[in-house]
Amino acid sequence: MEQRLNLLEKGHKALKAMFGLGNYLAKCSIEKTLQDLIYFRVSQINGCAFCLDMHSKDLRAMGETEQRLYLLAAWRDAPLYTDRERAALAWAEAVTKINGGDVPDEIYEQASAEFSEEELIDLTLAVITINSYNRLNISFRTLAGGYQVGQFEAAAN
């Protein structure tokens, strides 16, 4: 499979707008490790190889264990995740898979029990953002495997 377009190399203004969301999320109420856990799970759902490579490396650099990464697709059945992480993962999956409906009340109630209103808004923005990145990377066939931790920090500012 050949890459169609390299938005990063071209420094496209659309990507700069996306970096603005990342800058907001870097300072928001949701802890960075949880954000990246959500980014990794949503990227699994969407099949974005570039984002899976990126966020697995970022998570490992933050001290995440291999076992938790390996079991993330089956988080409901694995005892390795906190109630807060489970609520965030359920919310992220529901928002990502929203089609012809809404987020079920039970998932909203679970998320509301673990997150304040501000945190829930920030969590939703994080889910929307990674879904957008996934769609850009999948559409343009961004090549996976070459990401290095911290590679985009300078470009984002």
Rank of each mutant, 00 (worst) to 15 (best):
D102L: 12
E109L: 13
S112H: 09
Y24W: 00
T96R: 08
G11V: 08
G11H: 12
R135Y: 09
L120M: 08
A113N: 07
Y108E: 05
R86S: 15
I130E: 04
K27L: 07
I30N: 04
N23Y: 06
L21H: 02
K57P: 00
E9N: 15
E93L: 05
T65C: 13
Y24V: 11
A126W: 00
N134H: 14
S112Q: 10
I130K: 04
A17M: 10
E93Q: 06
Q44R: 15
E118T: 15
A154T: 13
T142R: 03
R60G: 10
E2Y: 03
G146E: 09
L143Q: 08
Y147N: 04
N6M: 10
L72I: 15
E109R: 14
A113H: 12
N157Y: 11
R4M: 06
E109V: 08
L21F: 03
A74M: 08
E2L: 06
G145D: 02
A14E: 09
E9I: 08
C28W: 02
R135K: 12
K13I: 15
R84Q: 09
L25F: 08
Q148M: 05
Y39G: 02
K13W: 05
V95P: 00
A155K: 14
N137I: 03
G100D: 12
Q3D: 05
K13S: 15
Q148L: 09
T65Y: 12
E93G: 12
N6G: 02
N131F: 04
D53R: 00
S43K: 01
D77V: 10
N46Y: 08
L71P: 04
N99Q: 15
Q35Y: 03
F140Q: 08
E109S: 13
H12F: 10
R76H: 14
E106I: 01
K16F: 03
Q151Y: 03
S139R: 07
M54I: 02
W75C: 12
I130R: 00
H55Q: 01
A90D: 10
L15V: 11
N131W: 00
F140M: 13
K57N: 01
A144I: 04
F152S: 02
E119N: 14
F19Q: 00
N99V: 15
E2H: 00
E106S: 06
E119Q: 13
H12N: 14
A156M: 08
I121C: 11
E109K: 15
E117H: 12
G47K: 08
I38A: 03
A90Y: 06
A87N: 06
M62E: 07
L72Y: 07
S139G: 10
F152P: 00
L69V: 14
G101N: 09
N46H: 09
K57I: 00
E31C: 06
G101Y: 14
T96M: 06
E64A: 14
A126S: 12
F115E: 01
N134P: 13
A144C: 11
R84A: 00
N99M: 13
E9G: 15
G63T: 05
